[in-house]
Structure formats: structure tokens, C-alpha cells
Design a protein around this nucleic acid. Structure first.
Length: 272
DNA sequence: TTTCTTGTTTTCAG
DNA sequence: ACTGAAAACAAGAA
């Protein structure tokens, strides 16, 4: 499932490969997750050029020459993939953007949870301004102080679900919540208020380290994530807790539990 | 047929 | 009114 490093990987690849490309045609094969609906969606996009790409939390934004933006959420299984023009579409290719350089950009999503929404630049501004998304963890503005005060204001919550809430820190999902807690030697079931100052500092580092490391390897392909070139992220080979059998630190068995309705992985020996 | 999967939103109890 | 927990939602794979 694409989280921050995976979405950012795709964004960078789009920035390097698709800026200035004209969308000569749009083919919709499944339109239920488009906004506005199919006909208006195609009208808004056809004939425009990609002028840039940005990301906020797990939202990927494709900016068009007509000042509109396609806001894409990949949810569990969504991906954007470049293919030579006319490649026979796979089963779950929902939208094909035909480009002017002999390539097709596929929007592919097995589970159909992901969506594409056309929004105005003002709406994009709103998203950046509002308080529904917390700070970007790789932004310089994400300081230890800000992180601490967020955690302290929600001291009765379990630390792992809190990490995954977008209001506190943007872009963290199941993988990197487990990884950050492993780095910090903290159990996912701990109440946020029970974390001591050094633990909070380690957790803050853990978030940044695990995201930065993963980004270096183009993300983790734990589900069926692929990058823009349909290639697996190599970060899957560098995970320490999530979906792992053995702890990378003490070689003990990783325990899998359920918190709420989500799985959590941790080392019972290392994480206190 | 049932269970499992997830980010985000909605609902509900306290 | 507020908080945290749980359920709901999108839908297909095994």
C-alpha cells in the first residue's frame, strides 16, 4: 500500500518524465471513482499539458495547463504506470491518459478504493492551509517540539493508531508506523502519554529515518505497489518489523497483533 | 461463502 | 462538547 515514500517516489518520477507532456486523449474503462463523472472528467483533461506534480500526505497532485489539478489517492492498491502507446490494458486499468510522446499513462487499481478528483488551484491551496493534515514529516518545519506537543495533547490514545492519524503527522500508514516504533524500541500498544522524553525523541528520529531510508530505495512493495515504471520498490528488503518474521536487531520472533482492526508488528524483546 | 486487506470518514458510547 | 474506539466504506482475491 502506497504511503509517503511510495507516493513521493511516483511524484518524483512523474516530475522527471512527464512535465510538458500533452494529454492527447483520455480513455475511461471504469469511471465510478472519478470526480466529476466520466464525461466532464475527460473534457477537463483532454488536450491539456502536465505542468508539475506535488504531494500532500498521501495525495498525489497532477497539475494541468488549464490551472486544474487531478488529485489522486492510491489507497491500497492504486498505481500509475507508463506503458508504450497501445499496450493491451491489464484487467484493472481504469483510466488511460494517452500522451504526445508515444506513451500511455495508466491508472490501475485492483481494489478500486483509489480515486481521481479534478480540483481547482484554490481547492489545492485549501488542502495545504487547513488543519486536517498535520505537518509533512520530511519538512524542516516538522520539529521535535511540534511532534511532542501533538503526542502530549492526545496522551490517552495508543501510540500506533495516533501515528497513523493524518492530523498529527501526514503520510504515515501501517508500514512506517511499525517501522518507526521498532526504531524507537516502543511497543505499539503504549499509551501516548506514557512515552518518556528520550523515547519521543527516538520515535521522532525513527519516523524520519524509516521514511528517508525507504525513499532511497523507491518505496516498499509490500502489497502490489509498483513505481511509475511498473518496478517493485526495493525498500521491502530493508524493513525491520512490518511483515517480518525475525527482528533485525535481536533475531527474536516478531509478534503480530491486532489493534482496532489493523495489524501491528513488533519485537516483544526489544520494544518496551 | 467467508475472511482479509487499508486510509479516511462516520458513528457511537462515555 | 469532546474524546477515543469501533464500525463503515470503497471491492476483489484467495
Amino acid at each position: 500500500m502506497p504511503e509517503l515514500p511510495e507516493v513521493e517516489t511516483i511524484r518524483r518520477q512523474m516530475e522527471n518524465n512527464l512535465v510538458g507532456r500533452k494529454i492527447t486523449d483520455v480513455i475511461v474503462r471504469f469511471g465510478k471513482r472519478l470526480e466529476p463523472a466520466q464525461k466532464k472528467f475527460i473534457e477537463a483533461v483532454r488536450g491539456e499539458k502536465f505542468v508539475g506534480f506535488s504531494r500532500r500526505a498521501k495525495l498525489l497532485m497532477l497539475h494541468l495547463s488549464n490551472k486544474l489539478t487531478i488529485a489522486a489517492h492510491l489507497k491500497m492498491t492504486g498505481k500509475f504506470v507508463l506503458k508504450p502507446h497501445g499496450t493491451e490494458p491489464e484487467k484493472h486499468v481504469h483510466v488511460i491518459f494517452v500522451l504526445d510522446n508515444g506513451q500511455d499513462l495508466w491508472f490501475h487499481d485492483v481494489r478500486k478504493f483509489g480515486y481521481l478528483k479534478i480540483i481547482s488551484l484554490e481547492k489545492v491551496e485549501e488542502l495545504f492551509k487547513g488543519d486536517e493534515f498535520g505537518p509533512e514529516p520530511l519538512d524542516k518545519k516538522f520539529s521535535l517540539d511540534i511532534f511532542e506537543s501533538c503526542i502530549k495533547s492526545r496522551k490517552n490514545k495508543k501510540i500506533k493508531p495516533l501515528l497513523m492519524e493524518p492530523k498529527c503527522i501526514a503520510g504515515i500508514g501501517n508500514i512506517y508506523a511499525d517501522e518507526a516504533l521498532w526504531h524507537a524500541l516502543v511497543r505499539p500498544t503504549r499509551r501516548a502519554g506514557s512515552l518518556k522524553k528520550p523515547e519521543l525523541a527516538k520515535l521522532y528520529d525513527g519516523i524520519i529515518v524509516s521514511l528517508t531510508e525507504s525513499l532511497k530505495h523507491r518505496g516498499a512493495s509490500s502489497e502490489n505497489y509498483r513505481d511509475l515504471f511498473d518496478t517493485e520498490g526495493e525498500s521491502t528488503n530493508f524493513l525491520h518489523a512490518y511483515n517480518q518474521e525475525k527482528c533485525a536487531r535481536c533475531k527474536g520472533a516478531i509478534k503480530r497483533i491486532v489493534i482496532g482492526t489493523r495489524s501491528a508488528h513488533y519485537c516483544p524483546k526489544c520494544q518496551k
